[in-house]
């Protein structure tokens, strides 16, 4: 790994929720450094804090304690407006349920983050088509989510995550709603993207996780170990 500043840096991060009068410690004292590039898998049992970790890194939520720094920006005290800008420019999200806007076409879904970033319309459309072509959906760009298969919808979601050229893609169980064959193809696509960007994937599928460059194990809100794999990120 390079000795440059890490892309992601967590220090003593905790996230606690109040639930039914009790405090749920979703994350508790997590320290973590992820360097630029490669694919990182986060695994662990249900309720271990995987998704919470991803949300904190992606600026989707704020920690109860500790600091989260991504691409050199401390997220803990970022004003709401800057946090929105961070999510728009620095992170691309891929969700388990795809979360596409149902009344927009595939192309419009992909173009949306670029419109938020005020990319000129012709440029946004050009880039949208290019990125849809990259995920193999050039011919389906005018279809709405309801007209696409689960795998195709997840590809659109991945294309949308790549739209603003973020350095980091976060995927929360991206294969959870797909059959195993489709799941593998999605995973392969994410792995391919991981050759250029940093991709963090939350998954239950251990066999898929093992193909990642780095695997993080979470249990009861604590990081068990970080396992760099041979042939991983240089």
């Amino acid at each position: 790994m390079s000795k440059s500043k890490p892309l992601i840096e967590l220090r003593d991060v905790a996230k606690h929720y109040g639930k039914g009068g009790q405090v749920v410690r979703a994350l508790d004292g997590v320290d973590l450094e992820i360097r630029d590039g490669g694919m990182v898998a986060i695994v662990g049992p249900s309720g271990s804090g995987k998704s919470t970790l991803l949300h904190l890194i992606g600026g989707m939520d704020r920690p109860t304690r500790g600091s989260v720094t991504v691409a050199g920006r401390g997220l803990g005290d970022l004003p709401r407006r800057d946090l929105t800008r961070f999510r728009r420019d620095t992170v691309g999200f891929v969700f388990q349920s795809f979360n596409l806007i149902p009344n927009l076409t595939a192309e419009e879904n992909v173009v949306l983050p670029m419109e938020f970033a005020k990319v000129p319309k012709p440029e946004a459309r050009r880039r949208g088509r290019a990125v849809l072509g990259r995920v193999g959906l050039a011919s389906r760009m005018h279809h709405r989510p309801g007209e696409l298969s689960g795998g195709e919808q997840q590809r659109v979601a991945i294309a949308r995550a790549l739209a603003n050229n973020p350095p980091l893609v976060l995927a929360d169980e991206p294969t959870g709603n797909l059959d195993s064959e489709t799941g593998q193809s999605i995973y392969a696509l994410l792995r391919e993207i991981g050759r250029e960007l940093t991709v963090m994937v939350v998954t239950h599928a251990e066999p898929l996780a093992r193909t990642a460059d780095q695997v993080l194990h979470l249990k009861d809100g604590r990081l068990q170990e970080a396992q760099p794999r041979s042939g991983g990120v240089p």
Binding site: R81, T84, R85, R87, D89, N99, I101
Partner: peptide, 16 residues
């Protein structure tokens, strides 16, 4: 709600 969350996640502003 989920759509609102998604739009916020992909960079939609509160004002928008």
């Amino acid at each position: 709600a989920r759509e609102i969350g998604t739009l916020k996640a992909i960079g939609g502003s509160d004002g928008g």
